[in-house]
């Protein structure tokens, strides 16, 4: 895929950080197409090289169209979920995120990670911006946890066999360190398909 511009479909769950995710991906060299979550159908995977599930308010169960489409996703199409986007992936794999004791709205947390894929080249414990009321410490079947925070909550998961990856933190937040490395790593992971 090297040298080719990757095209991303960003499913917008009406979070207020959507255009910063667009900017984050564009700065890394991707072209981004925004799709309203209410317009998501089974054909959503036909366009673009990969799909990003945006953050958003509420519980994953509220986003039926995204959940239904994810169930029919072609195995090789990469999907990256951010915050609610990751929670949607987990919910589909029967992990229910629940209210967390320490709400992390607008705070940065240290991220312990595996140093590979998305986190390649990043120092252990780098700080990342958080905007979640819900979370989980459990890892669903098929997924591998690739990052956790100091409280033991899941901060990153990957399912390589189904090309799914998700993070609980917000990589586009100005509170997140090494934003451009994260974006470059994401595009490399997508490009490897």
């Amino acid at each position: 895929m090297q040298g080719m511009m990757l095209c991303c479909t960003l499913i917008d769950h009406f979070d207020s950080f959507t255009y910063s995710i667009v900017a984050w991906l564009e700065e890394a060299g991707a072209a981004v197409r925004l799709v309203n979550y209410r317009q998501v159908g089974a054909d959503i995977w036909a366009q673009g090289d990969f799909t990003v599930l945006s953050p958003g308010p509420g519980h994953p169960a509220e986003y039926e169209k995204t959940l239904a489409a994810l169930g029919g996703k072609p195995v090789s199409h990469p999907v990256f979920g951010i915050c609610l986007g990751m929670q949607i992936m987990l919910y589909q794999a029967s992990i229910n995120c629940t209210p967390i004791p320490c709400i992390m709205h607008g705070k940065a947390a240290g991220i312990a990670h595996n140093g590979q894929d998305l986190f390649q080249g990043l120092p252990p414990g780098f700080r990342a911006g958080q905007y979640n009321s819900l979370g989980t410490a459990e890892c669903p079947p098929g997924f591998t946890v690739i990052a956790r925070d100091g409280e033991g909550m899941v901060q990153g998961v990957v399912d390589k066999s189904r090309c799914l990856m998700g993070v609980q933190f917000h990589p586009e937040s100005f509170l997140t360190e090494h934003r451009s490395v994260l974006a470059a790593n994401l595009l490399r992971w997508v490009g490897r398909g």
Binding site: S16, F17, Y19, A23, G106, K107, L175
Partner: peptide, 26 residues
């Protein structure tokens, strides 16, 4: 600190929604 950070992130996105020349920066 958290309240201001949240508003900065929100406003970054609002500015990025119109930033067709250069993305927002703090």
């Amino acid at each position: 600190a958290a309240e201001l950070a949240m508003i900065v992130d929100l406003l970054r996105s609002d500015l990025n929604s119109v930033a067709d020349v250069r993305h927002s920066r703090v």
